[in-house]
């Protein structure tokens, strides 16, 4: 599938009707989502025939992009029922199979050998400090191949240091810097649309047997 096709299909998905600020629900735009998954597949082979988990899946954009690129089994996890309902109907619309689990990522307890790749657009931690790092911590425990994630560019040094030193990542690499357009979703947004600089990261977790968490 071509990048443009993928972006087009993702653009047709339903997004949050009533976004919840406490969960930092911002839709992952088709531009960013298609590039994230396209890079994961074409540069690293981390999607096709893999088991992919989408952490904090929201309306399912990243997970469905993985399914479109040939992931064999995709699981979307979110704490919010409404998001899961939208994600599930988005999957039906595209005629794709995706499993969902209603859970709080930071309390997730998972057998760590089955999921190959975790993709996520975590809450950036502007409302609740460290929310994105909680996601990353669990993602690096669950994934056996790679974790793809978005974090604010302003936190780059912190993310790198923490991933390598505290979360047992063997590598942490910024693949590119993207503009995340935050549309005026919430009342406290004064400007119509704001661009936030975000990094697209690829983390490689320690292989089984090397883990000591």
């Amino acid at each position: 599938m071509k990048l443009k096709q993928l972006e087009g299909l993702l653009g047709s998905l339903d997004q949050f009707e009533n976004p919840k600020i406490e969960l930092e629900q911002y839709p992952t735009g088709p531009h960013i989502a298609s590039r994230l998954l396209y890079t994961a597949e074409n540069s690293f082979g981390d999607v096709e025939n893999k088991v992919v988990a989408d952490f904090g899946c929201g309306c399912g954009t990243l997970g469905l992009a993985a399914a479109l690129l040939g992931a064999d089994h995709v699981i979307g996890l979110d704490i919010d029922t409404e998001s899961l309902e939208i994600a599930s109907s988005n999957a039906d619309d595209l005629d794709l199979d995706m499993d969902f689990v209603h859970c709080d990522i930071k309390n997730l307890k998972w057998q760590d050998r089955i999921v190959d790749t975790v993709v996520m657009n975590p809450p950036f931690g502007t409302r609740r400090k460290g929310a994105d790092m909680d996601f990353l911590f669990v993602a690096l425990k669950v994934a056996s191949n790679a974790v793809y994630s978005l974090h604010k560019t302003t936190t780059r040094d912190h993310v790198k240091r923490t991933a390598l030193r505290d979360y047992n990542a063997v590598s942490a690499e910024v693949l590119c810097e993207l503009r995340f357009d935050v549309p005026q979703l919430y009342k406290f947004h004064k400007k119509k649309e704001v661009d936030v600089a975000v990094d697209l990261w690829r983390f490689v977790p320690k292989k089984d047997g090397e883990k000591h968490l």
Binding site: H73, D99, F100, V101, K109
Partner: peptide, 21 residues
Amino acid sequence: MRLLTHNMLSSNIKGVTNGFP
């Protein structure tokens, strides 16, 4: 939910040691 997903999930209640399957 497929049984593949079931095969990964454990009970995540605090203090539970044998939460799988």
